[in-house]
Nucleic acid binder design. Sequence first.
DNA 1: AAAATTTGGTTTATAATATAAACTACTTTA
DNA 2: TAAAGTAGTTTATATTATAAACCAAATTTT
Lengths: 93, 93
Amino acid sequence: MFKELDPLLHSQLRLAIMSLLISVEEADFVFLKEKTKATSGNLSVQIDKLNEAGYIKVTKTFQGKMPRTICNITSKGINAFDTYVKNLKTYIK
Amino acid sequence: MFKELDPLLHSQLRLAIMSLLISVEEADFVFLKEKTKATSGNLSVQIDKLNEAGYIKVTKTFQGKMPRTICNITSKGINAFDTYVKNLKTYIK
DNA sequence: AAAATTTGGTTTATAATATAAACTACTTTA
DNA sequence: TAAAGTAGTTTATATTATAAACCAAATTTT
């Protein structure tokens, strides 16, 4: 019947982040913030959660003198996203 | 870009309830409980929320001597569900 | 016919989550 | 050098989801 929905992905902002990362393979904090229209605080927290779950990889560098946070999706993340979408379809079909 | 997801529908259990009601047009508490595998308490609360939003109509009757709670989806509910699905696709496409 | 169990729920307490607001540290501009 | 901007993080709070406890009536068991 209905499949379980990964609670980590069943969140509007985290899903948006993953959706972006799956298509671009690399995005920084500013880019994600613009695209998702999220506040910095919310974005920061949700990036952390995805990172801790191993769904994305976060690299903190400096662009000249300014900090820069780069995110990439991992294969684990791609997998989780695909499964989430598959399971979601049991609800909306 | 990404469309807003109705928070009332972006919940695993409420989405499952709506998904069921959209296909059967009438279901009682026991049926919904079986199909969703939810606990009674959780189901009771979520039915209330959908009812208060006007997404479903709840009718409490008696089946012989036992109480029976019947739920139907409303046209407002059908609309909200359709919009939710449409908006969701901006994330998973 | 009591006692125990089941049915069909509701209410309440608690844990988890999302989000905004406040803050930090540094840089650039006036 | 003071004000404003950038790129975030931390913390506090409001919301949500969920489970546990409860209730009233019906049914079954002993």
